[in-house]
Design a protein around this nucleic acid. Structure first.
Length: 493
DNA sequence: AACGTTGGCAACCGCCGAGAA
DNA sequence: CTTCTCGGCGGTTGCCAACGT
């Protein structure tokens, strides 16, 4: 793509034409590719004299054979003063995760919260992070963020991310808005929750049609810790066409039926409410609803299931691979710390967690104190103590195997598209499968692209307790795992 | 040492919205 | 009101170095 450039660079025809035109009437071939020091100097000099903006004039007046867009990009990402270079600090990483949970792929907005950082930088960081985590079979976000971030609810990562993007993106763009889907596999996913949990709260219809604009993720039976989520704010980058409407469609048009009799319940994989899988995360992990696991075209991540892996429940937990970089480990630590903190927070004030879009917005502008401030310190403290973390590390070998397995299994996932189709046919009413899925390639792209996606309307329950002390719950909560389990492992389903 | 994979980074592409003409 | 220009944004791709086998 970085080839010697056609007449007009620019993906943007307008800017391209204007930029390529050249003020001197001379049709200059715009240069592409890496910038040279000389070009940088010219650009810097120009900006110094004329200030930022009017980028197309740069090319016209400075002699640079670069289009305006390219100049702007170069300036913004590399030449602009006060740019912070180098690795992200721990705090920045935490903030990015937090912001992403709230904003989705709104890199520019995220960058606005990170002085000296560019959207491109953040985007690259995130993409890399996603890759790692996906490879490791981990959710993108610390579980508690699911509760913390309203926007979370429907952020579905194209999670796929990586590759997926290409195949899936067009779809996402047309069915939802682009870049609003950023969910990790264990992000909150309404579809993963048994319909009745929503029905309970809003008997009328789909939870997203909830006139109260809120719904509970979890039954109130858990010490009143049902997670109440509120609708996304448009401000938060969740266009009306986004998942919300999607769910309105997919769910409202599909009767929310009682959960199928599918259950995860074995000695090592007891998700019943009675089983104490993870003390600190009880409200989440002990949901009785976990019994419902509906296959979803969602990205099947590593699908090492208790049954198949033969490991004990304890070994089965999502764990950080030793092979993971420090980044991943950091994320895990962070996740744990956040989880601990939030756990206590939630116990104190559950109902206030989501005060709506406005709050989400304000948070964006200024990270919540309890997260930005306390968490930061808590994070370090907790991370230091890291008992669970050690456990994670100890079990990393398991995860490693999971990770290694994942590739293979993910490759095997493709053929499962057909399985999905048959499953859909088998349990048509049990799975609120969106029309687009049926119409399209049956989620092939999703599977291939490992995309979580609106398809989340299907149904695995997610409590995504990453690095939780509740191994079984954790893994069980990972849709990817669940998915893999359900699809790959008849032993479970 | 050679080869393949992965991570990190930089840049481009295409779309979109705002504002001016 | 429509069209055009510009700038911004998010997604994608290519390159290269580091790492692992």
């Amino acid at each position: 793509m970085v080839s010697g450039g056609g007449a007009s660079h620019g993906g943007d025809t307008t800017s391209g034409s204007s930029g390529g035109g050249g003020g001197d009437g001379q049709r200059q071939v715009l240069k592409k590719g890496p910038w040279t020091a000389a070009e940088d100097a010219i650009l810097m000099e120009y900006v110094k004299r004329h200030g930022e903006g009017n980028w197309n004039s740069v090319q016209r007046n400075s002699g640079l054979s670069r289009c305006g867009k390219s100049c702007r990009l170069r300036w913004a990402n590399h030449l602009r003063p006060n740019l912070k270079k180098g690795a992200f600090s721990q705090e920045e990483e935490r903030l990015i995760i937090e912001l992403h949970a709230k904003l989705g792929n709104k890199w520019a907005r995220m960058a606005a919260q990170l002085p000296g950082r560019t959207d491109n930088e953040i985007k690259n960081y995130w993409n890399t992070r996603m890759k790692r985590r996906q490879r490791a079979g981990l959710p993108l976000y610390p579980q508690e963020m699911h509760r913390d971030a309203p926007a979370f609810q429907f952020q579905h990562q194209q999670h796929t991310q990586h590759s997926s993007s290409s195949s899936l993106q067009p779809f996402l763009s047309s069915h939802t808005q682009k870049s609003t889907y950023n969910s990790s596999l264990s992000l909150f996913d309404p579809s993963k929750f048994p319909a009745h949990s929503f029905q309970t709260h809003n008997p009328n219809s789909s939870f997203l049609s909830n006139t109260n604009h809120e719904f509970k993720l979890f039954p109130d039976t858990n010490n009143g810790n049902g997670l109440t989520l509120q609708p996304l704010s448009p401000v938060l980058g969740y266009p009306s066409s986004s998942p919300t409407s999607f769910f309105n469609q997919s769910l409202s048009t599909h009767q929310l039926l009682p959960p199928p009799s599918l259950q995860f319940n074995s000695g090592n994989f007891d998700l019943s409410p009675q089983s104490n899988l993870g003390a600190p995360y009880e409200p989440i992990s002990l949901m009785p609803l976990l019994k419902v696991e509906i296959p979803s075209p969602q990205t099947p991540l590593q699908s090492t299931t208790p049954a198949s892996s033969g490991t004990s429940g304890g070994d089965y937990m999502i764990a950080a691979s030793r092979g993971n970089s420090g980044l991943l480990d950091d994320l895990l630590k962070e996740a744990q710390a956040l989880s601990h903190l939030e756990q206590s927070e939630n116990e104190m004030s559950r109902g206030d967690e989501f005060s709506g879009s406005d709050k989400g917005k304000s948070v964006v502008g200024e990270p919540k104190e309890d997260v930005g401030g306390n968490v930061g310190s808590d994070f370090r403290d907790n991370a230091a103590d890291a008992t669970t973390e050690n456990q994670l590390e100890d079990s990393s070998s398991v995860q490693s195997s999971i990770g290694m397995k994942s590739k293979k299994e993910m490759e095997e996932m493709n053929p499962m598209d057909d399985e999905l189709t048959s499953l859909l046919e088998t349990f048509p009413s049990a799975m609120p499968v969106p029309e687009w899925y049926r119409r399209s390639d049956g989620g092939r792209g999703m599977l291939n692209g490992q995309s979580s996606s609106p398809i989340d309307a299907s149904g695995t329950l997610d409590i995504g307790q990453e690095s939780s002390s509740s191994p079984a719950a954790t893994s069980a909560m990972d849709p990817g795992l669940i998915l893999g389990t359900c699809w790959n492992l008849p032993s479970i389903c």
